[in-house]
């Protein structure tokens, strides 16, 4: 058994007296596609914020590729191989598409030379070409000068993922990538994410769209009120009584179980 790429151990976080994440442990195998699901307010985005260092956990450890990353500040974590997208698109609105992707390369910039080398003048820098090539390889056909604010929602969602990819991460955290997309766009996004997965990038996806979860991910962790209530293959998740109760309430969950029997 190879060691997992991401290992979350006994993680807890509370805001004031409210426990948002309680003693959650799970593992993401290298190259895997794991979905983190749960009802609204279950703590999924908080989990992402803990993993990326936006918040600090009260208890517990996070291990990425064998290294405990708790001591790293949020800006250093992307350099360790963990990049993310956001629930609401958070591209830089005043930057062009290529510039946004070049920002994703930031964690790989080293020394002052990288900082004073022109990146966007005349579109001929190595960083610029790399960003353009990455966009092209992900089949995103945009005009390099397009300012992000003027682009359609579905394209912006993909560009946000490409920006995270520009950091060359081992683990990609995607926070509700399909939110706000229609069925066609969602299908296109799934193919896009599978294409990324094939390049060896591990995916950890927070998602509400169960059809996307089923067709994209192999295993899933379910959170409810900050606790882990399920950890296993996606195919079995709808049979788990605790998960049904969390989503449907105790009465309906009972009916559903009765119907299954």
């Amino acid at each position: 058994m190879t060691q997992p790429l991401l290992k979350v151990d006994d993680l807890s976080k509370s805001f004031g007296g409210l426990a948002v994440i309680s003693e959650v442990s799970f593992e993401v195998p290298a190259g895997g596609r794991l979905a983190l699901i749960g009802p609204n307010g279950a703590g999924k985005t908080t989990m992402f914020n803990l993993l990326t260092g936006v918040y600090r956990q009260d208890v517990g450890t996070v291990t990425l590729d064998g290294e405990v990353i708790d001591a790293y500040p949020s800006r250093a974590r992307i350099g360790l191989g963990m990049a993310r997208s956001f629930q609401n698109i958070r591209l830089m609105p005043h930057l062009s598409v290529v510039e946004n992707v070049m920002l994703g390369q930031q964690s790989r910039a080293r020394g002052w030379r990288d900082f004073v080398a022109p990146v966007s003048a005349f579109g001929r820098s190595a960083a610029y070409r790399e960003a353009e090539d990455l966009l092209a390889s992900m089949n995103i056909e945009t005009r390099p000068g397009d300012v992000v604010a003027t682009l359609p929602y579905g394209i912006r969602k993909k560009i946000e993922v490409v920006r995270a990819l520009a950091a060359k991460p081992k683990l990609l955290l995607l926070d509700e990538p399909a939110a706000g997309l229609n069925a066609v766009e969602t299908a296109s996004l799934r193919d896009f994410l599978l294409q990324i997965s094939e390049t060896g990038v591990t995916l950890l996806v927070v998602e509400h769209d169960m059809s996307l979860v089923r067709s994209l991910c192999t295993s899933t962790v379910v959170l409810n009120f900050g606790r882990k209530i399920y950890d296993g293959p996606v195919s079995k998740v709808h049979e788990d009584p605790q998960v049904l109760e969390a989503y449907l309430g105790p009465r309906h969950a009972g009916e559903k179980e009765a119907a299954h029997v």
Binding site: V54, F86, M92, L95, E99, L103, Q106
Partner: peptide, 16 residues
């Protein structure tokens, strides 16, 4: 320019 637009994201992208 990215710090101007969104400092949280800039930080997560590795910007000091």
């Amino acid at each position: 320019r990215s710090v101007h637009d969104d400092e949280v994201v800039a930080d997560l992208m590795g910007v000091n």
